[in-house]
């Protein structure tokens, strides 16, 4: 029984992504098997050097750093979206697995939920 939470919303523009992340962390905290997939504009969550002081928001980069502590199994990024938004290994967070076949990943999980 595994859950995949998909975040396709860009960071900071709306709260939908953060709510989905909280849900993923809650599941993981209760020892449920949960992974995260960032796709579409959502891959921008994974960019490094996010300095959010001027917009008075907590950096999602720091939120995500807690994922492994909570026991989130894997963080996936959609390859096509990463290319579209020019995410390269050198400006992407560590511990992210880039995947080619999004549909296959969805099929591997018993529950899939989208942010927002």
């Amino acid at each position: 029984m595994s859950t995949l939470i998909v975040i396709d919303q860009p960071p900071y523009g709306s709260w939908a992504g953060r709510e989905a992340l909280d849900m993923a962390f809650s599941l993981a905290a209760f020892d449920q098997s949960v992974s995260l997939l960032f796709t579409g504009a959502g891959v921008n969550w994974l960019r490094t050097y996010q300095d959010t002081q001027e917009i008075q928001q907590k950096s999602v980069e720091r939120n995500l750093a807690a994922a492994s502590v909570f026991g989130v199994e894997a963080i996936y990024a959609d390859e096509a979206a990463s290319r579209l938004y020019r995410l390269m290994p050198d400006n992407t967070m560590a511990g992210v697995t880039v995947i080619k076949d999004r549909a296959a990943l969805l099929r591997q999980h018993s529950h899939v939920a989208f942010a927002g």
Binding site: N44, T48, D51, E54, S59, L84, R86
Partner: peptide
Amino acid sequence: LAITMSVEAEVAVPVFALAPDVVARGLGQS
């Protein structure tokens, strides 16, 4: 986020981007 796709190269008018939003998204490093 459009500046990751060089939108400014595709339009024929001056393009401005708000720095706090650019930096927050880690795009100040491009």
